[in-house]
Structures are given as C-alpha cells and as structure tokens.
C-alpha cells in the first residue's frame, strides 16, 4: 500500500511541478508580447498601468537570469502570490479565485458524486433486461455525446425562457444581498439547479453506459459462471458483478475529472455562474493573463486533490491494493 501511494504521490508531485513550469514558461516563450498587450488594455486606468508595469518588471525581472526568474516564480507561488488581476484591479488573483471556488465546489461536488452514484445504479439495472438495455443505452450514448454547453443552453432555453421557471444567469438575484435567510437560500438553490442539472445529466449518461458495459463484462467473468453453475441466486451474482464493476468505474472517475472540469467551465459560461469558468471567460476576453494563469493552477490543484481522494477511496474499496497485490488503480 505504501508503494501504491508512494507512486501516486510521485506522479502528482511531478505533475504539479510540470504544471507550474508550464505556467511559468508559456508567457515567456510565446510569440508576441502578451504582457504588453495586457498593459495596453489596462492603460485606461493610469494608476493600474503603472502598478502593473512595476509589478510586471518585478515579477518577470527580465534583467535576472532565467533560473532566478523561475525560482522567484516558485517563491511567489508558495507564498500564495499569483499576481494582481488586471480585470478586477487591484484585487490579487488568489483572492479573486478564492471567491470563485465555493461556487465550483457547490456545482461540481454534488454533480460528480450524484451522477456517479445514480449512473452506476441505473446502468446496473439497464444491464438486467434487454428491453431496458435497448431503451436506456441509446439515451446514455446520446447524453455522453452531448457537448456540456449545448445541454446547458437547451436547458436554459427550455426551463428558463420557454417555461420561465428557473433563472438562467448568476448565482443569486441582483435584487438580493447575501444573507442567511430562507429567501436568499431558496434563491441560491434556484440559480444553482440548472447548471448542476446539465452537468449531472451529461455525466450520468456516461456512467450509466460505463456500468452497463462493465457489468455485462463481469457477468461473463469466470467467478460469475461458477456461481451460476452452483445455482446461486441471481441477486448474489449481480451484487458481486456490481462490486467488481464499480472498481473500474472509480478509476474511470479519476480519468474523467479533467473532462468534467472542462464541462463545468463551459456550463458556468452558459449560466454566467460565478465560478472559475466564468472568471476564465472574463479573463480571456480582457486578456488578464495573471488571472488566466491563476485559473490554470487552481484547476490543476483541484484535479490533483480530487485524484488523491479517489486513490484513497479506491484503496478502501479494493482489498487487493491494500494487500499490495496490484499497484495500479487507474
């Protein structure tokens, strides 16, 4: 088990190291002068421009040798300093991102967990009869094939415009100010629902299909045939098949995280939901490079953390990793 975690941690540390390096490398070696562009944009605000200019010179310190620039970058990063946002000047990027994080967590955590659980159970049921399989599988395939933003747009159009039962922009109404009242909480939930639901649906299709395929594979496994030959009840055979099929679904979740996060980004854009995706769009439109870089790092850190959590869960679910029998989860 120590070896399993050791290996995983090594990969994650290397990944983080690589990500930070990319983050440092790209603005320096891309064609053109992006930072000049960015400064040109903020130059409307002269104080901002001069502060940014100063900051930029300090941070990039082009007079310093490259290795020192690189070390400085790391030093700033470890102090939590990701620069100052040009678009939301003079807020530090870290703070801007910290304000967005709760929305992402509120959207992603329930969407990922619920869709995974519901999809797995639904897929297991679908594998049970031909009739269900023939109706559920095509829907599942269409759902996974749907681009996240398009399902979001359709839901917003149908529930927000045609039926007019859900708001389609923001995290809460403009008229309300954040307080701990039922009215406000209800309003927040109302705004949260559609982005959550569209994220949920696309993933749900994927997990249902995945489980359906895995369980059919497991029902053809030797241990299932043995139980059948011994006349074990169907319920026991299905339960074993499900337990075995959940494992690849769990490693699948780890592999899908990146795609899900990308889906969340565009879903937030559709619903103007103030998470990192929405920030990112604003940052791109305003060429706020510090903010873009910050978003990049936060996404990476989030995905790495989630991966680590899944690894821990995997060890809890698969006894073989605990006994050091297999080293590879994902």
């Amino acid at each position: 088990m120590r070896k399993y975690f050791g290996r995983k941690l090594l990969i994650y540390l290397l990944t983080f190291f690589l990500a930070v390096t990319i983050d440092w490398l790209i603005p320096r070696f891309m064609p053109g002068n992006p930072v000049a562009n960015m400064l040109a944009r903020v130059s409307v605000n002269s104080t901002a421009a001069s502060v940014m200019q100063e900051y930029y010179t300090h941070l990039f310190g082009l007079d310093l040798p490259l290795w020192q620039q690189y070390l400085n970058f790391w030093a700033n990063l470890l102090r939590g300093d990701l620069g100052i946002s040009a678009y939301l000047f003079p807020k530090p990027v870290t703070q801007v991102l910290m304000n967005a994080i709760p929305y992402d967590v509120a959207l992603l955590l329930p969407a990922i967990l619920l869709s995974w659980l519901a999809g797995n159970n639904f897929g297991a049921v679908a594998a049970r009869s031909k009739w269900l399989d023939n109706t559920v599988s095509p829907i599942g395939y269409i759902l996974t094939a749907t681009p996240y933003m398009w399902l979001g747009i359709l839901l917003a159009w149908f529930f927000g415009i045609i039926l007019d039962v859900f708001p389609i922009a923001g995290a809460y109404s403009f008229s309300l100010s954040p307080t701990l009242s039922w009215k406000f909480i209800g309003d927040v939930l109302l705004h949260w629902f559609l982005p959550f639901f569209s994220l949920f649906m696309v993933q749900f299709g994927g997990w249902a299909i995945g489980m359906r395929n895995m369980i059919i594979y497991e029902l053809e496994a030797d241990y299932s045939h043995y139980l059948e030959a011994l006349g074990a009840p169907r319920s026991l055979i299905r339960r074993y098949a499900f337990n075995n099929a959940v494992l690849p679904q769990l490693s699948g979740l780890a592999l899908q995280l990146g795609v899900i996060v990308a889906g969340a980004l565009v879903t937030e854009v559709v619903f103007s939901y103030p998470g990192i995706g929405y920030l990112l769009l604003a940052a791109i439109q305003n060429q706020d490079y510090f903010l873009i870089q910050g978003c990049f790092l936060f996404i990476i850190i989030g995905v790495l953390l989630a991966n680590f959590v899944i690894d821990i869960v995997y060890v809890l679910v698969d006894p073989r990793t605990r006994r050091g029998m297999t080293g590879e989860a994902a």
């Binding site: 891309m30 990146g258 978003c295 991966n307």
Partner: peptide, 17 residues
C-alpha cells in the same frame, strides 16, 4: 493523463494572438 487537458489547452491558446 492527470493534467486536465483543457486547462493546458486554455493556457496555451490564451497566449496565442
């Protein structure tokens, strides 16, 4: 595999004029 592909694409694409 662990790095979210989209994040990398974003940061590269963002710097291309």
């Amino acid at each position: 595999l662990v790095i979210p592909t989209m994040a990398v694409l974003l940061i590269i694409a963002a710097y291309l004029q």
